[in-house]
Design a protein around this nucleic acid. Structure first.
Lengths: 361, 361
DNA sequence: CTGAAAGCGCTTACAG
DNA sequence: CTGAAAGCGCTTACAG
């Protein structure tokens, strides 16, 4: 049996939308003081069972629920964490978001989530909106390459951890995958299988991971004493049309590449489609694992990064910062140094990366 | 040149974490009244350029940013929407979340996001936490089968739209896919290709979509005058081990099924793996499209639903409710009736659903 | 054009 | 065990 608040009978004042009963209303109905209601609502001791029962009855009858906006204002902590990523719809960010959420939940915090759509201005707008909401901390997958706008916020104590890509022009914690090492190992794998002309298809060079993976590609080629023809490198937006055109140009080059390294999962998926339409097998290694990669033919060899671990590590770093900050209230406590964590990648051999170059090449 | 707040020199009081300057501090530094600062911060008219400049200087010097917690408390609207879904990491919810976010953003609202992990208690906990935060509205993909806990909140005017699955035991807006019709059409497609023994692998029967899809399966079979052997139907958790075992039992039955209908994308992916390990081709139609379904061999025929449209429609319904509620402040305005929107599904023919039964069957 | 006072709904610090 | 007063940082309603 659940009772619901009645609209005040005969009230002439327009019922404002969202006009909910307050602790004051509950106190009046239960015939107690405001503080007693607060004690019951928050499970604080020092209320007789009989008083508590009266308060609870009033709460149910009025449909009261504590307004956390007021509580937050008074307490100064919002128990919420902001997560800014590139695109909620990108499968790479699903497990990452989930991992951040689980850690936040374990600390009693809610997650406020937003996409930058890879637009630096939108990133800034979103981050500052979250700061205005006084989130306790921020987990940011940055789109921009200048984060000085965050300086006043960091100075004010907003804990911030960058994930997947580091902050630019400011010092901040970062949790990254080893893009350089992963790409280098992936390309070296292709070289070990006999390839000498290898194409690199990546995201926009402004993006840190794209630049690092390109650097890894160049390092592997240089390490094997192989030249890199400029036509074998293409960086840009990851929309299918652009990637398809770039891949075809390399595959139909003179001489053509015999293998491709794809800089992230969006690129890999498009390359798989391109290769499926061509008769001659071409070797492929992709950065990022993706669902069903093992069931394609050939199955796709990838450099896997652990998105969930990336998110979980970032969130744990964030809450460690928050706890440190909470403890370090005494003057003269030095601000802890920004930490950079680099997680290893893992080469998963499945078939596409072990295709040898054609006999004539 | 950007200035940052200095810690108060020689302050003996412990610097509280998150101790930020307020409008009062800005007003004092600029030598103006509090209201003038408020005007500048909110871009309200009626401030001379010179006064405005002085205020802006103080803002920059102190690193001031408006505290939206206070603003929210006073204004009564939080400009935020809660989104409760099953699992942030499930690829089905990525585009859905993104669509909700875009609509919220267009209305100037932030998104507070959480996973129920398919646990009714966790759903309730999350939803009520969002209500305590006074979100303007809720988009819920429900895990539970009793939403009466929401009654006081709905009575208080929290706009709520259920997505993918309807609310249980309360009246509320819902935006759904046509699970019944989609499954019926998918199964009818298999029947049209000659199958008579078709297995159905679905999610837990408590979940509305799972029950509806099963109903669609039964309707298609009955419509073709085909019996359904109890051993051809398996509902339960979608973890790979359970689904694999259930699929194998049907494939190795006596007589075996010649085709499978998979109740959602998690099930389909596991069934694809099971079938990949078997010599004899078996027909398959899955509910939900998924990335790379077209590149598998055989490519997977699916009943597609539009997750982004589901989310977008739900969010637009939500904001329409909010605007109606905002306008209908006069007494006697009737509460608008809950609406149920059912979006059509689309059969995408790719190959796996057109495999005929073996000659002997 | 400008600002002092009141109040949003809680919690804190204190007194009885 | 209980409650009145002050205050969190803004906006609102009003007066000058």
């Amino acid at each position: 049996m659940r009772q619901v608040a009645e609209p005040p009978a005969g009230s002439t004042a327009p019922r404002r939308y969202g006009n909910r009963p307050t602790m004051k209303d509950v106190a009046a109905r239960a015939g107690v003081g405001l503080k007693t209601v607060s004690r019951v609502v928050n499970g604080e001791p020092g209320v007789t069972p009989d008083t508590e029962r009266r308060v609870r009855e009033a709460i149910t009858a009025l449909g009261f629920r504590r307004n956390d906006s007021a509580r937050i204002l008074r307490k100064g902590r919002t128990a919420s964490v902001g997560l800014v990523l590139e695109d909620l719809a990108d499968p790479f960010y699903g497990p990452l978001s989930r991992a951040v959420e689980e850690v936040a939940r374990a600390h009693g915090a809610l997650l406020i989530n937003g996409s930058s759509a890879e637009d630096p201005e939108r990133e800034q707008e979103l981050v500052l909106a979250l700061c205005a909401r006084r989130v306790d901390g921020l987990v940011i997958i940055p789109a921009g390459d200048d984060h000085r706008y965050l300086e006043p916020e960091l100075a004010a104590g907003v804990a911030t951890v960058f994930v997947d890509r580091p902050a630019a022009l400011i010092e901040a914690d970062a949790v990254l995958s080893d893009s350089f090492g992963g790409a280098r190992d992936g390309v070296a794998h292709l070289i070990a299988h006999g390839h000498r002309r290898i194409g690199f298809l990546g995201d926009r060079p402004r993006i840190h991971t794209a630049a690092e993976r390109l650097r890894g590609y160049r390092a592997a080629m240089a390490g094997a004493g192989l030249p890199v023809d400029p036509s074998w490198v293409s960086l840009g937006p990851t929309d299918p049309a652009r990637v398809r055109a770039a891949a075809l140009a390399m595959l139909d080059g003179d001489p053509p590449v015999t293998a491709l390294f794809a800089g992230n999962n969006r690129v890999t998926v498009t390359v798989v489609r391109v290769l499926a339409g061509r008769p001659r097998p071409v070797a492929l290694v992709g950065f990022d694992d993706f669902e069903l990669a093992d069931l394609l033919s050939p199955a796709v060899t990838v450099v896997a990064q652990d998105a969930a671990r990336l998110g979980g590590t970032a969130a744990r770093t964030l809450f460690r910062r928050l706890e440190t900050a909470g403890a370090a209230t005494g003057p003269g406590t030095p601000a802890p140094e920004p930490r950079r964590v680099v997680l290893p990648t893992r080469l998963i051999v499945r078939g596409s990366g072990e295709i040898p170059p054609p006999a004539g090449a």
